[in-house]
Computed example of a mutant assay.
Amino acid sequence: GWLATIKHSSVSIENSGYDGYADLRRRVLQLVSAVEEIIESDVWTRVGLRYINAIDVHGDPAEGWVNDALVGPLQSDAFAVVSDYSGRIASAVDGGGCLLQHGLRFNEDQSGAENQYMTYVFDFDVYRNEVAVQDTAAALDDIHAQAFNLFDWCLGPKAREQLSATK
């Protein structure tokens, strides 16, 4: 299910799973078209996309699942057993910015067994500030491309191989 929210100072749309960026873009522009006549501004204060992706890690995330630049400390012998690992990188870019939050999440085996497996989570929030309403589509395209490039950079060779095999 899609959820569109219209508040006094914001308009948003969200979904936990969809058929790709073209589907998301179409729905966002549909919502923009619906509210364009009632909003009292020609400019959005902020246009953003937030993507949360998780990769089930089969073994050590530092062994090819995640970009070495993100998991470097896990490759060190300084920590015998890691029970929590996360990071946050914020960047100002092109009249907006991006925030990458990433880290390990331990999950219980769905069979109810006590076995745990790891998921590496990437949480991307990419945005532009002061976007003219008529430029919404172009802004969405730009920030989607930026988020995709950032996600692509975050992957290690094993994750790339697994994602390529599932296409």
Rank of each mutant, 00 (worst) to 15 (best):
A4E: 05
I6G: 10
V11N: 09
I13K: 04
E14M: 02
E14F: 01
N15L: 06
G17W: 05
G17H: 09
D19G: 12
G20A: 05
D23S: 05
D23I: 05
D23V: 09
L24C: 09
L29F: 02
Q30C: 12
L31E: 02
V32N: 11
V32C: 12
S33T: 13
A34H: 00
V35F: 08
S41I: 02
W44G: 07
R46C: 09
V47I: 07
G48Y: 07
L49Y: 07
R50M: 00
Y51G: 06
A54P: 03
I55D: 04
D56T: 13
V57Y: 04
D60I: 00
D60L: 03
D60A: 06
A62Q: 06
G64P: 12
V66D: 11
A69F: 15
A69N: 10
L70V: 12
P73L: 00
D77C: 03
A78M: 10
A80Y: 00
V81H: 07
V81L: 07
S86H: 13
I89S: 05
D94V: 00
G95N: 09
G97E: 05
L99K: 01
L100R: 09
L100N: 11
Q101S: 06
Q101Y: 04
H102Y: 14
G103H: 14
G103Q: 04
L104P: 10
N107P: 01
E108Q: 10
G112M: 00
A113D: 00
E114K: 10
N115G: 13
T119G: 11
V121K: 12
F124M: 06
F124N: 06
V126H: 05
R128G: 01
V131G: 02
V133G: 12
Q134T: 14
D135C: 12
T136D: 01
A138G: 15
L140E: 12
D141C: 14
I143A: 12
I143H: 15
A145E: 13
A145G: 08
L150I: 12
F151H: 08
D152P: 03
C154Q: 07
P157M: 04
K158R: 07
A159H: 11
R160N: 12
Q162G: 01
L163G: 11
L163M: 15
L163K: 15
A165N: 05
A165E: 04
